[in-house]
Design a protein around this nucleic acid. Structure first.
Length: 290
DNA sequence: CGCATCCTCCGGTTGC
DNA sequence: TGCAACCGGAGGATG
């Protein structure tokens, strides 16, 4: 499940391979067509598959950017600019290959949904096992308002102040701190894995109410999240379940995680506790995290 | 109009 | 060996 560091890795791998390339052919899977015929917006959002395919034809990819856990492909066609917005969901993955059979992992090969032929002869392929991902073509961010509501990038100057202010809002202050740091309207890019790790490093119980943290704790927690995200980017992200970068490589941050998925606390050897917070399984050490 | 509470989307994985 | 339950980002509908 890709979080900010994993998406960062994907974007950094995509950049040199697709920047400046033009889309010359678009293929969309029968599965996507079929779901759309039933009225669902499977993977392709805000458009019918054929309309998206037509629109993408002859578009030139000007730049690739990560924003929160989204990938923005900045594209141009006939002097009009657009953004192809992509979210990998639980299991989305991009591949840059000369033939789709180069995708050797069966579960990725079996769930190829969008194939873009570039003018360098390579295929840029989107595979998505569970189809939770998203592709949406817009002209500007305001065409899809949820993108305007995202908190600043955690590495931006104003992100910490934005987060601290969000903690004071009525809708956040009485929530569990873990739910708040995983909410992209308070702080973006932090999912279950890195929220779990940051809270463990800070020795904060994920179930504590946000208003019960001191100002210093909230500030240090924010800094710890940034540190964990930064460390993960440096180690290529965490390859848990379906995450691969576009070269099919796995990251190594999963080997550095101290609490996510652990049954025993690495600090005190107490059995860890699992609790559902904000709908997601949360590991913590009942002894270390208060 | 704020907010809280479901609901939805999926197939690989897990557990019985 | 088979099969049902389970899991999860995040927007959207509902109350």
């Amino acid at each position: 499940m890709p979080e900010l560091p994993e998406v960062e890795g994907v974007v950094n791998a995509l950049k040199p391979q697709v920047t400046g390339k033009t889309i010359k052919q678009v293929k969309i899977s029968e599965t996507v067509y079929h779901s759309h015929s039933l009225g669902k917006q499977t993977i392709i959002k805000g458009s019918l598959p054929d309309l998206l395919a037509d629109a993408l034809m002859d578009m030139r990819i000007e730049a690739v950017e990560r924003r929160s856990k989204y990938i923005y492909f900045h594209v141009m066609k006939a002097s009009n600019s657009y953004i192809l917005v992509n979210h990998l969901g639980m299991s989305g993955a991009w591949f840059y290959v000369t033939h789709r059979d180069e995708i050797t992992e069966a579960k990725f090969h079996r769930h190829i949904h969008v194939e873009l032929l570039l003018d360098d002869g390579h295929w840029l392929i989107y595979s998505d096992i569970r189809r939770f991902g998203e592709l949406r073509l817009i002209q500007q961010l305001s065409d899809y308002p949820p993108l305007l509501a995202l908190a600043p990038e955690p590495f931006d100057q104003d992100a910490k102040a934005y987060f601290l202010k969000a903690c004071e809002l009525r809708k956040f202050k009485d929530k569990e701190i873990k739910a708040v740091i995983m909410d992209s309207h308070a702080l973006c890019g932090c999912g279950n894995i890195y929220a779990t790790e940051a809270l463990f490093r800070m020795k904060i119980n994920p179930g504590r109410k946000t208003s019960q943290l001191s100002g210093v704790e909230k500030e240090q927690l924010f800094e710890t999240i940034v540190a964990v995200l930064t460390e993960s980017i440096a180690f290529g992200g965490s390859s848990i379940s379906d995450y691969r970068n576009i070269n099919g490589e796995a990251g190594s941050m999963q080997n550095r995680l101290q609490m996510y998925g652990m049954n025993i606390c690495p600090m005190c050897y107490t059995n860890t506790t699992q609790k559902i917070i904000a709908g997601r399984n949360s590991y913590y050490c009942p002894n270390c995290q208060k």
